[in-house]
Design a protein around this nucleic acid. Structure first.
Lengths: 247, 247
DNA sequence: CGGTCTGTTGATACGTGTCAAATCACGTGG
DNA sequence: CCACGTGATTTGACACGTATCAACAGACCG
């Protein structure tokens, strides 16, 4: 996965506006910048996973995004909307803001023009909006897992680099609800866990249904198919009570 | 408000890549494009209000954005992620996608370069993410109202062009919950209504508190100030029961 | 082997969804 | 200008889903 060798050791030797960045490494949990900092640079993840967060006055934390290799972040205007923290060890490229504000067209190594890059960031943000717009914990958790598909290993298992708390704060749920929902989906055999971090999506199609599925077209022909917690029997002992009860 | 005279009647006479758009008018409720359509153009709102929606397989509708004058939308990749529908009568400018994809730098009338425009759209999307990341109905409704500040009249009242259903589908709530929450905030005298569409933000500071407030800094010094429905007495008869009970 | 941290499970309170009905806003026609 | 009809909004009663508080289990580390 460590292909940053091709992109890294650029910069500084060229004095001109040749659009080159600086490579930077963060260790687990390290904070790159904080809310309200001056937003001088923007970044591209080369390896590892990073999260952006807000800390609300009531003490709650909001995770506004996870960023994986090739993802761009930190593009916001004069000050930071969020802080940026390393979920795992992270290697990233730092670019000067002037390269976006300036008049010259920017060409980035292996990522094309600045416009292309911005469109990608916008697309990712809209994906997050769709995810957060889902109503139930089940929908959001299923949607979340489907978006982590790119983290799949050779054996088909997804490795979740972030903890339950990160997921919860990302989906506007509690740790307990995330954990319960994952357990439930596993009991329903839509998922299979190998430790808390490694998960196999057994039935993508059913997960997509839960998550509001592949888009749909017009407001007609409504196929009522509301799969609630209580609407199906479990594996063996068809325990379809509320409160996640199982055993 | 109708300043589109300066921007409108351009286009077509100039054959070259002079970056000019076509003016277009939508009437209330009209659909501009639909999910999965080919995304050939993008748009800027000149007047009126527009919404983008997804229709989920379970019949629910998700409103992923409201767009006001000067807002940009429809920038997504080869096909539409959402449909676009006019909330009020809308006047907009339509631009060809090639102006974004092309190599030449684009300069738009009164909006600067394409990059600037994309950064604006990204900023708006991130604002929506922060809003949807709030947990309770109270927080989201308060946050929503604060973001509608720009719709303020001369008398200080905000005119809400969209119905309760639009707000509900935007905040991932039900119509009833939105209505109840607005009523509650009005009883608490943070709001004052003059008909369902016209609302005055009586206490912005308290609304900001509810909405997760102006950002905050670090994960320390937590000022526990969780204003729940039941945590305060109402105007006269301190009825702090649950279920929104009041009278 | 006893710390702490993360994740899971349980019991219960409470917030929000659902279904139903009343009320209000507003356009139409008398 | 007012009566009426229709749709939007508000309110009520109740069920259900999620938050909360608490306890337990497992992983990692000293």
């Amino acid at each position: 996965m460590e292909h940053h060798q091709t992109v890294t050791t650029v910069s500084k030797s060229m004095p001109d506006r040749a659009m080159l960045g600086v490579r930077q490494v963060l260790s687990r949990g390290e904070t790159l910048y904080t809310e309200d900092d001056f937003a001088g640079d923007w970044f591209i993840v080369l390896s590892g996973v990073l999260r952006t967060c807000r800390y609300l006055p009531d003490g709650h934390r909001q995770v506004t995004g996870f960023f994986f290799p090739e993802d761009v972040f930190g593009l916001e205007a004069p000050t930071r909307r969020t802080s940026a923290e390393a979920v795992t060890e992270v290697v990233l490229m730092r670019y000067d803001r002037a390269f976006l504000d300036g008049d010259e067209e920017v060409s980035l190594p292996s990522l094309g023009h600045a416009r292309h890059l911005l469109l990608g960031a916008l697309d990712a943000a809209e994906g997050r909006i769709e995810l957060l717009g889902l109503r139930s914990a089940c929908e959001r958790v299923a949607g979340f897992l489907l978006r982590m598909d790119s983290l799949m290993d050779a054996d088909g298992y997804i490795f979740l680099p972030m903890g339950r708390a990160d997921i919860a704060d990302y989906l506007a749920l509690t740790v307990e609800t995330v954990s319960r929902t994952l357990s439930l989906l596993a009991r329903r055999k839509l998922l299979s866990f190998r430790g808390p971090q490694r998960v196999l999506l057994v039935s993508r199609s059913q997960l997509e249904e839960l998550a509001g599925g592949r888009p749909w077209s017009s407001p007609a022909t409504i196929v009522q198919q509301n799969i609630a917690y209580t609407a199906q029997r479990d594996g063996p002992g068809h325990l379809r009570t509320n409160h996640y009860i199982s055993h």
